[in-house]
């Protein structure tokens, strides 16, 4: 019921937005989709990916390249998450056996390598970028709805997985790998599956992104973007379904506001970029200090006593 209401409200937003905010909305929905995957990985599998933008890029380039070579856009969109997930499995299989932050560093390294490969690969447009990607739908409103569909899919899949047999197994392994394994849980394989699932979400969002922009370059997927996903997941609240969506929304709005402020007359030319970098740092520090469990759990705590009283 609450979900239906939320869905109705979300669907009503795009037509009400002015043109320039519609672009922000599309960006928000796509970013939130990637963050849902990051949150799933961090909150339930206890793994951090510092290179999630690499899977966003892989999905985008897979969809873009296929479309440029004449494949129907829908096919590219369907294959984008598959290609990203396969890449994650190839990368994760040797890594998830190791403990701690190996995955974080490895994903970061993979993103750096991917960026330099893309920048020098002529078949992918090189540093100039991949141009002439056909459109998926007619106008920005269409992309807003495409992005909503993709985000909804990610949220539903994430919610379903968390409350299922493999989801319980992952959550169990987060407390005690030994006890989870003794219950028959192949801990490493489950973590790999969640990593692939999170990559698939990033890849799918990347696919929409490719058709939306119609143009891709390595510069669209900086390492800062990967960090942004992690910050959004932490700020929204790990271990909650709504957290990543709220986190992405809050950060994107903040960055937009500061951007507007930074481009006011009288501001120095570097103001927008400095301000938007600063926002991640400030929001993350504030969050870790005052809301260590993130926004969504904090809001929930506020609401429960007020209901009782």
């Amino acid at each position: 019921m609450r979900l239906l209401l939320l869905g109705a409200v979300t669907l009503a937003i795009p037509p009400l937005l002015p043109e320039r905010h519609l672009a922000t909305f599309v960006l928000f929905a796509l970013t939130a989709t990637v963050t849902v995957g990051v949150s799933l990985l961090m909150g339930y599998a206890g793994q951090v990916s510092l290179g999630q933008a690499a899977f966003y890029a892989i999905g985008a380039y897979a969809a873009g390249l296929l479309a440029v070579h004449g494949a129907p856009p829908v096919l590219g969109l369907l294959l984008a998450p598959v290609v990203a997930a396969v890449a994650a499995v190839l990368l994760g299989a040797p890594l998830l056996r190791l403990r701690g932050h190996h995955l974080a560093f490895a994903t970061l390294a993979v993103q750096l390598i991917l960026l330099s490969v893309l920048a020098s690969a002529d078949w992918a447009g090189g540093a100039i970028g991949l141009q002439g990607i056909p459109r998926l739908v007619g106008d920005d409103l269409g992309y807003a709805y495409a992005a909503i569909v993709v985000l909804t899919l990610a949220v539903l899949v994430s919610r379903n997985v968390i409350a299922s047999r493999p989801g319980r197994a992952l959550r169990a392994a987060a407390t005690s790998e030994i006890a989870a394994a003794a219950s028959g849980v192949p801990v490493g394989r489950h973590r790999l599956a969640v990593f692939a699932l999170s990559a698939a979400m990033a890849g799918l969002a990347g696919g929409v992104y490719a058709f939306y922009l119609g143009y891709l370059s390595p510069g669209s997927f900086p390492v800062l973007l990967s960090i942004e996903f992690v910050v959004m997941a932490v700020v929204g609240g790990l271990g909650t379904v709504a957290g990543p969506v709220v986190g992405a929304g809050v950060i994107i709005v903040l960055v937009q506001l500061l951007n507007t402020l930074g481009t006011q007359p009288g501001m120095p030319g570097y103001a927008p970029s400095v301000l938007s970098y600063a926002v991640y740092a400030i929001v993350l520090i504030t969050c870790v200090l005052y809301l260590p469990r993130g926004l969504v759990p904090a809001l929930r705590r506020l609401r429960i006593p007020s209901r009782a009283g």
Binding site: N160, V161, S164, P166, V185, A193, V194, L197
Partner: peptide, 13 residues
Amino acid sequence: HATTRSGFLAAAL
């Protein structure tokens, strides 16, 4: 867990 099978795909969908 040890006596059942359904995995991520079945759960997600």
